[in-house]
Computed example of a mutant assay.
Amino acid sequence: MSRIDDTQEFIPVRIAVLTVSDTRSLADDRSGDTLVARIEAAGHHLAARDIVTDDREIIADTLRHWIADPEVDVIVSTGGTGLTGRDVTVEAHRDVYEKEIDAFGTVFTIVSMNKIGTSAVQSRATGGVAGGTYLFALPGSTGACKDAWDEILQYQLDYRHRPCNFVEIFPRLDEKQRRK
């Protein structure tokens, strides 16, 4: 359910898109293109975009690089969340998380169940926070990217969404580190 408070001003966030694939390039990255189109249509800024292979260390290093970049607020990856031996995106995300957003995977599963039924059980979509940056790992299908953005992220990344959203707590994500 979307509850947008139109009395509040929209605050664009800077979002990086990472595609994890051994076979895709920017020329044929349909899932990455889907996310970029939705990010820009919503009024947010594309901070960075890259494609990396299904390699846990390379994925984690890319995530760390973007987490350290003050021009990146959110990282959305697509691909590598399944159950096969090459699917290591979730593990790479968890290598860098300070806190996992457990309910993101749960809500994504609920959304997926409504679209693809029990096949939703094969997704390991996840979300977390590190270094004041939100991170989300989505499946590699364009449908899953649409569902995650249209049903979850577009609202949680909109400051006007009520009763709460991810944007309004950005200043508090790294408050523990600032107190040291």
Score class of each variant (00 low, 15 high):
D95V: 03
V88I: 07
Y159H: 14
D54L: 03
D28F: 10
T62Q: 11
D61C: 13
R30I: 09
G132F: 03
G140A: 07
I58N: 09
R172M: 10
A144G: 12
A130D: 07
R3F: 12
R94P: 00
D6M: 15
P12F: 00
D174R: 09
R162I: 06
S141T: 11
D150I: 09
V20T: 12
D33S: 14
G117K: 06
I15A: 06
R56H: 11
Y159G: 10
R162V: 09
I15D: 01
T19Y: 05
I4H: 11
H161Q: 15
T109N: 12
R179C: 14
I39T: 06
R160I: 05
Y134D: 01
R162E: 14
E168Q: 12
A68Y: 02
A60M: 12
D6C: 12
I51C: 05
A92F: 08
T84R: 11
D174V: 04
D22P: 08
K115L: 02
E168Y: 05
G117H: 08
P12A: 02
T19Q: 02
I101D: 01
I15M: 06
Y97G: 00
Y155H: 14
I152T: 04
F10T: 11
D50L: 04
L138M: 07
D102L: 14
T81D: 13
P70E: 15
I51E: 01
I11Y: 06
R38S: 06
K176V: 12
G132T: 03
S25P: 00
V96T: 03
P70W: 09
A16R: 00
V96K: 03
L35K: 00
F108A: 01
D102A: 15
L173M: 10
G85S: 07
D6T: 15
D6N: 15
I169Y: 07
F166L: 13
D73Y: 02
G117V: 11
Y155C: 05
V88G: 02
T53F: 05
D55L: 08
A48L: 00
E57L: 10
A37R: 11
V52W: 01
G85E: 12
D87Q: 02
G85C: 05
T23G: 08
S77F: 00
I110T: 14
A103P: 07
E151Y: 12
N165W: 03
V167M: 06
Q177Y: 13
F10S: 13
G117R: 04
I4L: 14
C164V: 13
G132E: 04
E9C: 09
D69V: 07
D6R: 15
E168R: 08
Q154P: 08
L18N: 05
S2A: 15
I116G: 06
E168F: 04
D54S: 10
C145M: 04
R179K: 15
L26E: 10
G85P: 02
T133N: 12
I4R: 11
T109I: 05
L63Y: 13
A48V: 01
T84M: 06
E71L: 11
V88T: 05
R64P: 07
